[in-house]
Simulated scan of single mutants.
Amino acid sequence: MESTRFILINTSHAGNVGATARAMKVMGFADLVLVAPRFADVLCHEEAIAMASGAADILARARVVGTLAEALDGVDFVCATAMTPRDFGPPTHEPRALFSALAARPQAPRLALLFGSERYGMSNEDVYRSHAVLSIPTHPEYGSLNLSQAVQLLAYDLRQALGGFGVQARTPDVTRADAQAVQGLLEHLQAALVDIGFLDPQAPRKLMPRLNQLFNRAELTQEEVHILRGIARQMQKRSSGAEP
């Protein structure tokens, strides 16, 4: 299933071909086949290359064939895409559930995902060739997806079924302020609050302990302590009439 084939049938717009290539590449898929597109040279069309945005290699390896039968050569399991279930034909599935079931088989099949024309979708004949119909769960009052959007959603669901990719998380390089630094900040801030008349030292009303708890929850960094002490310093300058 890593080598799943994405097949676009009678595609009209070059931009959708490029956007499809991009959607495939970000999810780690590379096998793109076009069946009788509107323009025979669509893979080298300027708009297709522009919309591929870094996935030009997918376009370079893609193939254009004349019939769906040619496009399905070597495929074991075919999934058609349709917005609504058909009265006759293969069963309709939610994509993620079906992909997970296929990936769990002892020997996962070589998969093909079929996408119809932007103008009229998939023909009944093409749907009848398929083992399953995929219906992306959408709002019941409006389920129309752009071609490349549909490709992106299915490519994502398929990648998740295959284990997904790890998130490239970046851990910020921060130095947490120690308890002594926080206490120094509190003392400085207390003096500044008294200077501007916000804190009455004769009736503090637990203001400073509450700020202490706030700073503890925030887990201040050393840089943040410096910033807050700088603010306290400016408060004191203003209250004394000194130039900032």
Score class of each variant (00 low, 15 high):
residue 226 H to L: 13
residue 61 R to M: 10
residue 91 P to A: 11
residue 119 R to Y: 08
residue 65 V to W: 05
residue 69 A to N: 10
residue 137 P to I: 01
residue 235 M to S: 07
residue 169 A to K: 15
residue 8 L to V: 06
residue 113 L to E: 01
residue 229 R to Y: 09
residue 24 M to D: 03
residue 131 H to N: 14
residue 228 L to I: 02
residue 6 F to G: 02
residue 30 A to L: 08
residue 128 Y to W: 12
residue 42 V to W: 00
residue 160 Q to T: 15
residue 140 P to V: 06
residue 6 F to E: 00
residue 42 V to R: 00
residue 11 T to P: 03
residue 54 G to N: 04
residue 178 D to I: 06
residue 17 V to D: 01
residue 241 G to C: 07
residue 62 A to G: 01
residue 30 A to C: 12
residue 103 A to C: 11
residue 56 A to D: 13
residue 173 D to E: 13
residue 117 S to L: 07
residue 219 E to R: 15
residue 183 Q to M: 09
residue 38 R to P: 04
residue 161 A to H: 04
residue 87 D to K: 14
residue 72 L to M: 01
residue 212 N to L: 12
residue 160 Q to G: 14
residue 55 A to S: 11
residue 183 Q to K: 14
residue 173 D to Y: 07
residue 35 V to C: 06
residue 21 A to F: 05
residue 70 E to S: 10
residue 57 D to E: 11
residue 197 G to E: 03
residue 155 A to M: 08
residue 100 S to K: 15
residue 118 E to Y: 09
residue 242 A to M: 13
residue 66 G to W: 07
residue 205 R to W: 07
residue 143 G to P: 01
residue 82 A to N: 07
residue 91 P to M: 06
residue 109 P to H: 01
residue 155 A to K: 05
residue 97 A to V: 11
residue 54 G to E: 02
residue 198 F to L: 10
residue 222 Q to S: 15
residue 4 T to K: 04
residue 239 S to T: 05
residue 223 E to K: 14
residue 224 E to D: 09
residue 155 A to P: 09
residue 240 S to W: 06
residue 108 A to I: 00
residue 6 F to N: 00
residue 134 L to H: 02
residue 194 V to K: 07
residue 64 V to F: 02
residue 209 P to W: 06
residue 239 S to E: 09
residue 37 P to E: 03
residue 104 A to V: 00
residue 150 A to C: 12
residue 136 I to E: 04
residue 206 K to S: 13
residue 214 L to F: 08
residue 129 R to T: 13
residue 89 G to V: 03
residue 203 A to K: 15
residue 138 T to Q: 13
residue 100 S to P: 04
residue 34 L to M: 07
residue 169 A to T: 14
residue 144 S to F: 05
residue 137 P to A: 04
residue 113 L to G: 06
residue 34 L to I: 01
residue 92 T to C: 12
residue 1 M to P: 13
residue 70 E to C: 09
residue 214 L to R: 02
residue 201 P to Y: 03
residue 135 S to F: 06
residue 43 L to A: 08
residue 64 V to Y: 01
residue 125 E to Q: 14
residue 221 T to I: 04
residue 92 T to F: 04
residue 78 V to I: 14
